[in-house]
Design a protein around this nucleic acid. Structure first.
Lengths: 212, 212
DNA sequence: CGTTAATTACCACTAAAGTAGTAGTTTGCT
DNA sequence: AGCAAACTACTACTTTAGTGGTAATTAACG
């Protein structure tokens, strides 16, 4: 196996040194460069095409996510693994959304870090153990389904049909009621949920993973 | 710590025995019962309220998912962990959707199984290692983003704003163009994607995880 | 037996959304 | 230079959506 080149991106030089040291102990890994900002990371990555970029999330200047996004847009052929202290759901999900190749926590054990980096290099998506629950949670029906508790059956049916792209006329046909009645249900459900339009209703429905 | 009671649900007696044996070796775990079908599982669970149900997915009669769904509906206060050979995305996602408390693969190492069961009992969501990638994948933007390749920049912007619930007027304001122009863009993008309304556009956008 | 909530339905509008066709600019490509 | 694509804008409609108010029917609750 070849030696894999790694770019460290973090605005804390101390931490960079620590990680660099750790990585340098591995025979098959090589720290190709260290930079302290997103801008530098992008420049460096485009220039040198490292096999993997270990990217801090909370940086001054360009944020980690922005950097990630820029790297992916630039079609840099490097794996990009987020390396962060944050275990917040939104951070993890954002990273996923922008196609990070992994998300590792800074408080991981050194051995775990090395292991996961190797897996990431092999093309696997890697994520620190404690985050699996977050992933799972975000895929579940939100408990916020309570939001819909105030809706009557009919209103709920309307909501689902709206979210499946149906017009009022089609809904009326499907439910065997008049379009006027459909409008009444819509009006009421909009008011209950504080919505302005059927589009908002549809989006709310998917957010809360209403099953159609 | 108390001894946790476990119900095994699997239509293969041999496998049940194997797992039962494995579990019985643990001091803090106790196999409270073994059943071979979803129906029996539901009856048993309601009757005896085990701390955890280890539930096979592919059973004759009531499927594992149906059983899971029934158990959750019945508000049985047991953790339900799926125990399956299937690592297919749809199975895992379905299990999540119906609020399984975990998803473990039958080819897990015995130690891992025991460990994960304990974690599940402690309230954690558990999942076999190889499945983390599946979870991650299903959260990512589908590669189908190609669908939107035919759209121009402006059409794309319109799409995003539509999907964020904005009206044509609001879109016009935001983009600094007239409402008439917004309608033109909408018309064109609807035609390109074969859509009938902005609601369909919005739904397509979320399906493909367009970033807003 | 009242009362309330849910469902249905109409009317009368106002406001959005969507469709068709025409057309002027700019930009990039040949 | 010439063409195509993208972006802009307008006119003129037609269709959907959404709001407000009124009201009858039914089922559930106390």
């Amino acid at each position: 196996m070849n030696i894999a080149s790694i770019l460290l991106v973090d605005d804390h030089p101390m931490l960079r040194k620590g990680v660099a040291q750790l990585i340098s102990l591995e025979d098959n890994l090589n720290v190709m460069g260290e930079v302290g900002s997103g801008d530098e990371a992008i420049t460096f990555a485009i220039e040198h095409a490292p096999d993997l970029v270990l990217l801090d999330l909370n940086m001054k200047g360009l944020s980690g996510i922005e950097t990630l996004s820029a790297l992916k847009r630039a079609k840099v052929n490097s794996k990009v693994v987020i390396f962060s202290v944050s275990d917040s759901e939104s951070d993890v999900l954002q990273a996923l959304k922008f196609n990070a190749d992994g998300y590792l926590l800074k408080d991981s054990e050194p051995e775990e870090l090395i292991e996961k980096i190797n897996h990431a290099l092999a093309g696997e998506f890697v994520i620190s153990e404690p985050l699996t629950q977050i992933l799972a949670k975000s895929l579940r029906p939100q408990s916020k389904i309570n939001t819909f508790d105030s809706l009557t059956q009919r209103e709920m049916e309307n909501l689902k049909l709206i979210a499946s792209g149906k017009s009022n006329k089609e809904i009326a046909l499907k439910l065997g009621i008049t379009e006027a009645t459909v409008k009444v249900h819509n009006k009421n459900l909009f008011k209950k949920l504080g919505l302005k339009s059927r589009v908002e209703a549809a989006m709310l429905a998917v957010e809360h993973k209403v099953s159609f």
